[in-house]
Amino acid sequence: MKRFWGYFIPTLAMIFVLLPLSGCGAENYDLNEATFFRVMSNMLYYPEQYLGKSISLDCFVYEIDDVQTGEHFTCGVRKCSSGYGCTCGNDTIIGFILDYDGNIPAAKNQSEDTSDKAWIHISGGLVDAEKSYVNVYSYQNGEKTDKIEQIYFYRFAVSSLEEIDGSSLNYYVTK
């Protein structure tokens, strides 16, 4: 009996110590196909916890103009759904406005349903936790409408950027 408790108590203690440790200490976020959507969605809601952290991801170049101010933005994004389940709503994009001193390749097939896009691997971090809103025409069932909607991004300070072959990557992400 004593032997049983001798094993049981340390095992229980180990579980209670290891369980919290198993999920913490994530100082860097290296997004991959499995984590991209969840981390990016999380970042949209809780940007503060990503400030000062190193983030790297694969995305494609997307150029967008604010239809009201005319301001031009170069973004690194992936396509997803604006609705629940990320397959049930209208298509939208999820990503960042890129702040980069170097050359960013021009967007290619950015709105087409193809993986043949200008793919890049970027590293860096959030500039701040302020959302930048961009006014765009909304799409309904793939058709452009006259209705204007706002989409928002965080600014991403790019420390390194390289062009990559994105043929094996998903331009459309789900959870």
Binding site: L19, P20, C24, T35, S41, M43, Y45, Q49
Partner: peptide, 10 residues
């Protein structure tokens, strides 16, 4: 245990 309900890890 971590007191962190906003992490994308859980």
């Amino acid at each position: 245990f971590t007191g962190n309900f906003t992490s994308a890890s859980y």
